[in-house]
Design a protein around this nucleic acid. Structure first.
Length: 640
RNA sequence: CGGGAUGUGGCGCAGCUUGGUAGCGCACUUCGUUCGGGACGAAGGGGCCGCAGGUUCGAAUCCUGUCAUCCCGACCA
């Protein structure tokens, strides 16, 4: 391909819309254009990159015996209602674009394909003899992200490889899961990426075991916690660790353990309490009041106790709440802090004015939830779930507010023998309280956020270290959640029907391309790994007015092309400097400069990712590059 | 959705405070000189100043509304 025919438009200045290096570079180098927030055109150069990534993904998936397929993107709502995900994916902060067809039927634009594939499996898979099966596709996904960001990193339309496996038993699922783990490692290695595999939360997809593959980069949206010995790595959402030891209170719980009263005027924060009375944060129990909302309209107040020095992990909390209440109330839609503003916006019959925020203890009486705001003159006839204008939403849930707290305590708080906590009265705390003394038997579970510096569970001598990562792949063991909901069953060896075991495996193809740029760039531009570069070599004619240069370069271009090397010829009548700058910016791994030495058959070979330049006869360039590029295509670093 | 910022030729920006008929750099076109790290000179083309309404003799500039984009949180490949 000739650069003069490439529609190459490069920019000198960073576009104002881009924040992180990879986004700026993809825009500047002419790889992408934004059409709307989170919606991008993949220009010809990027399309070549995406095709190369796809090819690697296909080769590695096919090698495991997976079958490529292509599934519908328009998906009927009833499919999602059967799996129980329609409400969660469309209402509230749901991410599914949805629409109504001319018959009045609702459809969703596929954000993921569990429902479709499971329906197909239910139709096609009847016998254990057909199992296991692993189906995959590479196609555009649609997600109405709450906040699209950073170009291709979080788009509303993006390219994904998703795979779904079906099994007769859990062992078979685990085997395929392990095979996918290995395939993913090969895929990322071949793409030239440094990745780390981390334990992950399985989120809205559901299921048990799950692992994410992170491209380590400063701009990553995820926080990774890993031990130095490499034996433990997890997304912070999921990470577990040993908490720092609590400092025991000097005085053991007093009679009854209800705690001695302490006057704490205006001291509503941990810092203020510790500052005023010399406590350690680990001697305190802090209480968070939250509100969980469910698909069926249930609104459940939560009372969460944490040790004063610990932070809440919202994902762990959401999982705990889902496990307890989703079976009766459907999908958990949101958990928000219980504030007057929320009560107002949700039009809840709740009066918070009696709750002593800043002085709450774990034993806060459920009676505070009984107060209705009649005195406040609120109009309670209006219900959430109705669209503005009085038009009823498709499935208006009638809001029901639970009048007692779901009380959960993090283990670090539950383990305290004696602690300081709020006295449920303004300007009052209590010292030396105990759980039994307060008449509570809290449900203790892990709700705390692991932090950098925490000791590891597998080896207390190891500490967790933090790094940022871009999630490019995620594999899950789904179990039988979807097959049971959608009745995907098969007949086993004993002639008995049972639900299929499932796994699912995703790679963000377009995100991977940008992550590669994030990891491989310098101040002059992109430095693509050879395996996914849009072209492998660029031949630059330093001066197109010199016939000798043109002739030599054209010959080289033909020779390299004939050798199966993907080569660009910069034949533009620009000055050499412009062409060098552009070659650096677009990041072609190898550059051959045909310039002053052309008359004597000498050219210059430059590796983009390095600084070394090599003068050599044009006649030996092709052989040399064939060696280098075959290494690069395999994902190996250059020989140098 | 809440909080913050910004909308002026393709890109980056100034002009707005104190209203007076739109400007700079890059890019683009033509000519000339240059020609190995984003050249120089000359000439030229291109702008509903996001959109709508208002104030005014007069609005890019002041007021109101609205839309879009970006950043910080919930979402996730």
């Amino acid at each position: 391909m000739r650069v003069s025919r490439l529609m190459l438009v490069t920019l000198r200045d960073d576009p104002a819309e881009a924040e992180i290096p990879s986004h700026k570079l993809l825009l500047r180098a002419g790889y992408i254009r934004r059409l709307s927030s989170g919606i991008y055109a993949y220009l010809p150069l990027l399309w070549r990159v995406l095709q190369k990534i796809s090819t690697i993904v296909r080769q590695e998936m096919d090698a495991t015996g997976a079958l490529e397929t292509l599934l519908p993107q328009l998906q009927p709502a009833d499919l999602w209602e059967r799996s129980g995900r329609w409400a969660g994916y469309t209402a509230g902060e749901g991410i599914m674009f949805h629409l109504t067809d001319r018959q009045g039927r609702e459809l969703g634009l596929g954000p993921t394909h569990e429902e479709v594939i499971t329906t197909l499996a239910a139709d096609l898979l009847r016998s254990y003899r057909q199992l296991p099966v692993n189906l995959y596709q590479i196609q555009t996904k649609f997600r109405d992200e709450i906040r699209p960001r950073f170009g291709l990193m979080r788009g509303r339309e993006f390219i994904m490889k998703d795979a779904y496996s079906f099994h007769g038993d859990e062992d078979s699922l685990k085997q395929t899961y392990a095979a996918m783990d290995q395939a993913y490692r090969r895929i990322f290695q071949r793409c030239g990426l440094r990745t780390v595999a981390v334990e992950a939360d399985s989120g809205a997809i559901g299921g048990s075991a799950s692992q994410e593959f992170m491209v380590t980069a400063e701009a990553g949206e995820d926080l990774i916690l890993a031990s130095a010995d490499g034996r433990y790595a997890a997304n912070q959402e999921r990470a577990v660790s040993l908490p720092p030891e609590a400092l025991p209170l000097p005085s053991e719980p007093g009679a009854g353990g209800a705690g001695a009263p302490l006057s704490t005027p205006g001291q509503t924060t941990i810092e203020q309490l510790c500052g005023a009375h010399g406590f350690e944060a680990s001697q305190l129990v802090k209480v968070l009041l939250l509100l969980a909302r469910f698909a069926d309209g249930q609104v459940q107040p939560l009372l969460i106790s944490l040790r004063g020095d610990q932070q809440l992990n919202a994902v762990k909390l959401a999982n705990a709440v889902t496990a307890r209440l989703a079976p009766t109330h459907g999908a958990l839609l949101a958990i928000d802090p219980l504030t007057a503003e929320l009560v107002r916006s949700e039009k809840l019959a709740l009066d918070l004015s009696e709750i002593p925020f800043g002085y709450i203890g774990p034993d806060l009486d459920d009676a505070v939830l009984a107060k209705t705001p009649e005195a406040m003159g609120l109009d309670l006839s209006a219900r959430p779930g109705e669209a503005p204008g009085g038009v009823a939403a498709a499935h208006p849930p009638s809001v029901r507010l639970a009048r007692s707290f779901l009380r959960l305590a993090d283990t670090t708080a539950a383990d305290l023998a004696a602690f300081v906590c709020g006295a449920n009265a303004v300007d009052r705390h209590r010292v030396g309280a105990s759980w039994t003394g307060l008449g509570l038997k809290p449900e203790a579970l892990d709700l705390r956020a692991a932090q950098s510096g925490d000791r590891c569970l597998h080896d207390p001598d190891q500490c967790l270290q933090a790094a940022r990562g871009i999630e490019v792949g995620h594999i899950f063991q789904l179990g039988r959640k979807y097959s049971e909901a959608l009745e995907a069953r098969f007949t086993n060896e004993s002639g008995v029907d049972e639900a299929l075991w499932m796994g699912c495996y995703g790679i963000g193809v377009s995100r991977l391309a940008q992550a590669a740029v994030e990891q491989h760039h310098d101040r002059d531009g992109i430095c693509w790994p050879v395996a996914i570069a849009p072209f492998e070599v660029i031949v630059v004619i330093a001066n197109t007015q010199e016939a000798a240069q043109v002739e030599l370069a054209e010959g080289l271009y033909d020779e390299l092309s004939a050798a199966g090397i993907e080569v660009l010829l910069d034949d533009r009548s620009e000055r050499a400097g412009v062409k060098f700058k552009d070659a650096d910016l677009i990041g072609i791994p190898w550059r051959v400069v045909v310039g002053r030495g052309a008359a004597s058959g000498q050219v210059e070979l430059v590796r983009r990712a390095g600084s070394e330049k090599l003068e050599l006869p044009a006649s030996s360039v092709c052989a040399r590059l064939e060696i280098e590029i075959s290494r690069g295509r395999a994902g190996m670093p250059a020989a140098g």
